[in-house]
Structure formats: structure tokens, C-alpha cells
Design a protein around this nucleic acid. Structure first.
Length: 287
DNA sequence: CTTCTTGTTACTGA
DNA sequence: ATCAGTAACAAGAA
């Protein structure tokens, strides 16, 4: 399940690989994952040059020349896999020998971009929740505006954070997961952040003290930054831009550990449903 | 066979 | 009008 750290890892990888390359061919599958007229997208994108690879929340944006922007959302099982031509040294410092040479395309491949150096970018999505969409800058801006405060930016301040919590009737977890309030947090990191901040995910958002909100803010920053450093969490199908797994999986303290012992106090971790999602917490450490 | 998995949104009700 | 809660989507694992 790619959340902010996983998408950011892919963004950084793809920035090194794609920027400056010209797209010479596009092949789009017939699934609903590709939004809009397939023929139009293929025609419009072919011949353009990758300007940048950006991210807002969990949305990845590949900016092309000619005011065109490719939006990629991986949802649950989306993958972006970049494959260099054989024998060529990868840009960005990673040597080709580190990569897993997965067979591409596979049956879950929904789009293939070929670049002028014959390298390829594969967009895979087993469960067809994700999407690929071509927009112009105006549309891009309208979509980006719908996202809330972005962790690890100058906007992620205690003041902004508190204003998100004030007067909310919902619980902490639903708030952390709400992309229009805070961008990029998903089910894994929401539980990890609540645990680190020692706050129960089912707590009413408006019942939090300033101290607790401060703890949530700092835990969010710390955990997300650490997860990016560890190149994300691989739980199911997440892989980075070269097919490698993330290393944060071994750092998880609550997610996926329901029924196991709390790493802090040994209490059995509880698993319940909060905001319609599986939620694990320590009934002793978190209040 | 049923149940569980999750990111986002359409829908429902307050 | 606004907000909150939930079903639905999809395909595979257990």
C-alpha cells in the first residue's frame, strides 16, 4: 500500500531516471485504470520530454513538455517499474546489478512508456484501483489544491496542525487519513504515528490536548522522514522504481502486529476497526 | 465457501 | 450547506 514515503521513494528514483528523456512510444491497456481517451493520450504524450517528477500526498505527477502532466495514483497495488536497457549504468548512483530483473510487462501491466534511449517505464496495477490521467497545468493545480497540509514542508506547522483538529467531531485516525486535511498518510503510518505519539487512534479529535497534538505532529514528521530514509514499507505489493522492496517493514511497531506483544511494555496489542480500517494499538501505552 | 485486506469517492443521513 | 459515517470498488490471500 503505497503511502507518502513509498511514493516519495518512487518519485526520487524516477527523477533520476526520467528527467530529460523523450517519450517515443506509449502503449495503454484497455483497463479502466487509464482515464480518458487512450488514443488521445498516446498521441499527445509521444514526442514530449520529461521535465520533472513531482508528488503531492500519494499522487505522483510526471510533468512533460508542452503543458502536459501525467498523474499516477497507485492506490493499493499500483507499481511503477523502470527498466534500463541492458548493460547501461543507471543514473542517480544505483548500479544496474542491484535491480531485480522482473519480467516486464506482466499480466498486470496497464501502460508502457518507451523513451528515446530505449528504456521503459511500466505501470502495473493488479487490482485496478489506481489510475493514470493526462491533464494540463490548470487541471493539475485544481487537483493539487484539494490536498491538505503536506508533511515535511514549511506548511506542516503546529498552528496548521491544531487548526485541523479543532472543532472536528471525528476521531484521530479518520483525521490523519483524510487527504484533504493532511496529505499522504495511509493506514500503516496512521497507526505507527498514533503509537509513537502515545495517542489512541479512536480518540475524538477535539479531545486532544495541545501536548498530544504536538506529539502527533512530531511523530508524523519523524516516522515519515525515517520511512523515506528506509525507502518505504513493503507489506504486500509495494516496490520502488527498480523493483526493490522497502526496508521500513522491519521498523513497524504496531501495524500488522495485532495480538503480539507491545515493543515498549509487552502488553498484547489490540486490533479493532477505526474509520472503517483495521487498526492496531497498545491499550497500555496509548491513551 | 467466507472473510479480510485498503485509498478514495459516491452516497446517505444528520 | 456542511460534516461524518459507510458501502462500494477490485482481486487475491487465508
Amino acid at each position: 500500500m503505497p503511502e507518502l514515503p513509498e511514493v516519495e521513494t518512487i518519485r526520487r528514483d524516477l527523477t533520476g531516471y526520467l528527467v530529460g528523456l523523450k517519450i517515443i512510444h506509449v502503449a495503454l491497456g484497455e483497463s479502466r485504470v487509464i482515464r480518458g481517451d487512450h488514443r488521445h493520450i498516446e498521441k499527445a504524450v509521444t514526442g514530449t520530454i520529461v521535465q520533472s517528477v513531482d508528488r503531492v500526498g500519494k499522487l505522483l505527477i510526471v510533468a512533460l513538455s508542452n503543458d502536459q502532466h501525467l498523474l499516477f495514483h497507485l492506490k493499493m497495488t499500483g507499481q511503477l517499474f523502470f527498466k534500463k536497457i541492458k548493460g547501461e549504468i543507471t543514473r542517480g548512483g544505483h548500479s544496474l546489478s542491484e535491480t531485480i530483473d522482473a519480467t516486464m510487462p506482466n499480466k498486470h501491466t496497464r501502460a508502457v512508456f518507451t523513451f528515446d534511449d530505449q528504456s521503459k517505464l511500466f505501470f502495473n496495477d493488479m487490482r485496478l484501483f489506481g489510475f493514470l490521467q493526462l491533464v494540463d497545468l490548470k487541471q493539475r493545480s485544481a487537483i493539487v489544491e484539494r490536498y491538505g497540509i503536506e508533511p515535511l514542508t514549511e506548511n506542516f506547522t503546529l498552528g496548521r496542525f491544531i487548526s485541523v483538529f479543532r472543532g472536528r467531531k471525528t476521531n484521530v485516525k479518520a483525521l490523519l487519513l483524510n487527504q484533504s486535511l493532511i496529505a499522504g498518510i495511509g493506514n500503516i503510518y496512521a497507526d505507527e504515528i498514533c503509537f509513537a505519539a502515545r495517542v489512541l487512534p479512536q480518540r475524538g479529535a477535539s479531545t486532544l490536548t495541545e501536548k498530544e497534538m504536538k506529539a502527533l505532529l512530531h511523530s508524523s514528521e519523524k516516522i515519515i522522514a525515517n520511512a523515506i530514509e528506509k525507502r518505504g514499507t513493503t507489506f504486500n505489493s509495494y516496490i520502488d522504481g527498480q523493483g526493490r522492496k522497502g526496508n521500513y517493514s522491519q521498523e513497524l511497531r504496531v501495524y500488522g502486529r495485532g495480538g503480539e506483544a507491545c515493543v515498549c511494555c509487552g502488553t498484547t496489542l489490540k486490533k479493532i476497526k477505526v474509520a472503517g480500517r483495521g487498526t492496531v494499538y497498545c491499550p497500555s501505552c496509548q491513551r
